[in-house]
Nucleic acid binder design. Structure first.
Lengths: 190, 190
DNA sequence: CAGTTATTTCAGTAATTACTGAAATAACGA
DNA sequence: TCGTTATTTCAGTAATTACTGAAATAACTG
């Protein structure tokens, strides 16, 4: 590996994190490298930077493209492929969320729905279905929220996040007032 | 594997999803099994249900305990350990979020902070640091929001989710009015 | 204490996943 | 067309991760 020390730390960390997810070390490293590079890189530059085989780079880039995490660029009079990441980190986050939903949440939802359609043949199955219904409800609620939020542009999403906390506090304050009123009335009754 | 068909589908699916995360197949299967079981299970019951070795169950339960995803129960006059999952799915979600943050987000934040402290030795490093600063900012904003939200009890969290969408729409409406006002003024000027 | 039961540890092995180098394909230009 | 360059594919191998069975430990009982 042949990189400025500061970049190298970042790349190595992402390699480790990658293997902690489903993504493997190399894919994580390549992504990190592209993310911090001032301009797009071609496959051979990645080979030189990370010290891995050309074929590994090819496969890993394909994986990153399947995740929509990487942009393909072309320079004039150069038929090599160059790769970058989007400039906007919030856009990257959105893509990541979308892809993980597609791979992890959606299949789970459809399995749950399918099972919930079936007729339980025992008490054990009836109980299992009830539990799955709870899980299904939770996931549906989360995805409904997500579907609403995902369309927001970067700056509005940021606003919503900082606002989110305030909405929470508002809710708490409202509840406190209501419960104060209730306990006052209860006290009056006694 | 010796399970009611409906439970088996669920368990198998979670096994596959498990290996798509860092978690392995067996851990995923055991968790799914515990999640749908009407009462706590001991290790031997898990062995029988899933057809895996006793030692594998022991290691996998240890893993689940490290993730705080599983509760240890004891029956009177029985010194075996029995395991369950929490009843409240929202509590499960909170735990999952907390543990993933601890394992994935926090280490990344600290690596980023450390790198950002250092003096860049080149333009490449300067640019890399700027990119890392963007990423750091995004993660900080997300975790601030998360820290606010995570303390909410189940029903209030659910409220916030359904509300979240409305807050969004409110923001959009407000922006539309403002931009309408602006474009009117601009039209007047012309 | 010895005997019984529950659980854990761990070395060895099986299974899976990652990676490489060589060959194949593809896309050009002369 | 052939030669050159870029990229992909894939069989073989390396590396990693998962799993097992046997032995060790631990926690109890009589």
């Amino acid at each position: 590996m042949n990189l400025p020390p500061l970049v190298q730390s970042f790349v190595l960390h992402f390699g480790e994190m990658g293997s902690r997810w489903g993504i493997n070390r190399t894919v994580g490293q390549i992504y990190a490298l592209l993310y911090v590079s001032p301009e797009p890189l071609n496959a051979d530059q990645i080979v030189d930077s990370l010290g891995i085989s050309r074929s590994n780079v090819s496969m890993s880039l394909r994986e990153l493209q399947a995740w929509n995490l990487v942009l393909l660029k072309h320079l004039p009079d150069d038929r090599r492929d160059f790769f970058t990441t989007p400039d906007d980190v919030w856009q990257i986050l959105r893509t990541l969320a979308e892809e993980r939903k597609k791979r992890e949440v959606d299949p789970t939802l459809s399995v749950l729905r399918e099972i919930l359609m079936q007729q339980p043949a025992s008490d054990a199955e009836r109980h299992a279905q009830a539990r799955m219904a709870e899980m299904h409800g939770l996931i549906e609620q989360l995805t409904t929220w997500y579907d609403d939020v995902k369309k927001l542009e970067t700056d509005r999403l940021a606003t919503l996040l900082t606002l989110g906390a305030k909405v929470t506090r508002l809710l708490e304050a409202k509840d406190k007032i209501i419960s104060l009123g209730r306990s006052k009335r209860n006290a009056d009754k006694a």
